[in-house]
């Protein structure tokens, strides 16, 4: 259940859920076998809960986007903000889908090294610091509203999420930084990042759904259901907090956290305390 709560929080906070679900079991010496069918089924349930929470939180926005997409398909042109946002999200999801199918397996081999995962967590911090610095350097540039984002910029922000295939790099952190560099405010960059996360996490959990129906997973169905509910509740609370937080704050506190946690884990890994 702790893993479920951790997944719900860390999936949306820019601190890498994958990095934490790899490092914390090592740190706390939990006997987690990441290739065990029951564990994989549990993880699918947690992702499903998280995606559902995002869908519920942005339900009005998604209804408007769906209507906008349908309108644009019927008319054969994109002539309103909701349709444009919808197609921006599609443009942002395609590069991630391609990266997911082609890069996930080779990258998965990196999961076995706590030192490497810790190093990526430090890189995640440096990416956020660099993003904030570049954003401040360009502070005089007029801030671009989400509706004015080009499709190329939308696709670039979506592609930046692929960095999160590396355990330790945060999906939301990378996409918020990419949004900031495209000229968006923290507010809009975070909103676009969370909207982009919904189809990505949903698609991942739907495609992996058969794992929940596997005979080996039947023994953990109750735990998976409870885990999904807990992950969903913590994800909902996280997105509610973060949307308020980014009204007037930036990524640096998360950067400091990732830098310190990554450095501690890296030291422990090099000293062979965790392996």
């Amino acid at each position: 259940m702790l893993l479920a709560a951790l997944q719900g929080v860390s999936e949306l906070f820019p601190i890498s859920s994958l990095g934490h679900t790899v490092l914390l079991p090592w740190l706390l010496r939990w006997p987690v076998d990441r290739s065990d069918p029951t564990f994989l089924a549990f993880v699918v349930a947690l992702h499903f809960g998280t995606a559902l929470a995002l869908l519920v939180f942005y339900r009005r926005e998604w209804l408007r986007i769906a209507a906008g997409l349908a309108r644009s398909l019927v008319r054969g042109r994109i002539d309103d903000a909701d349709a444009r946002l919808g197609w921006l999200l599609v443009a942002g999801t395609v590069p991630l889908a391609l990266a997911g199918v082609f890069l996930e397996s080779p990258v998965r081999r990196l999961f076995g090294s706590p030192a490497l995962v810790s190093a990526f967590l430090i890189v995640n911090a440096l990416v956020m610091f660099a993003g904030e610095r570049l954003k401040n350097a360009a502070a005089l540039r007029a801030e671009k509203a989400l509706a004015l984002l080009s499709f190329r910029e939308g696709a670039s922000i979506g592609a930046s999420q692929a960095l999160a295939l590396f355990p330790g790099i945060s999906r939301s952190g990378a996409s918020i930084v990419a949004g900031l560099l495209a000229g968006m405010t923290h507010d809009d960059a975070a909103r676009f990042s969370f909207l982009l996360a919904t189809p990505a996490i949903f698609a991942a959990s739907v495609l992996e759904f058969p794992r929940l129906l596997a005979p080996a997973a039947r023994g953990v169905l109750l735990e998976s259901a409870l885990g999904a509910i807990l992950a969903g509740l913590t994800a909902y609370a996280s997105v509610a907090f973060l949307t308020r937080y980014f009204h007037s704050n930036d990524l640096r506190p998360f950067g400091y956290y990732c830098l310190i946690f990554g450095a501690v884990c890296f030291t422990l890994a090099v000293m062979k305390v965790i392996a």
Binding site: S72, L73, R75, G76, R77, I78, V94, L98, S105, P106
Partner: peptide, 30 residues
């Protein structure tokens, strides 16, 4: 990563193919 059919790859390319047709529709509309 392994030999045999790859349905996930096929689904992704199928969806991108459909999106290319949507793009064609927007070109016609424009």
């Amino acid at each position: 990563s392994h030999p045999g059919p790859h349905h996930l790859h096929a689904i992704v390319f199928g969806v991108i193919g459909i999106l290319a047709l949507v793009w064609l529709r927007f070109q016609s509309g424009a």
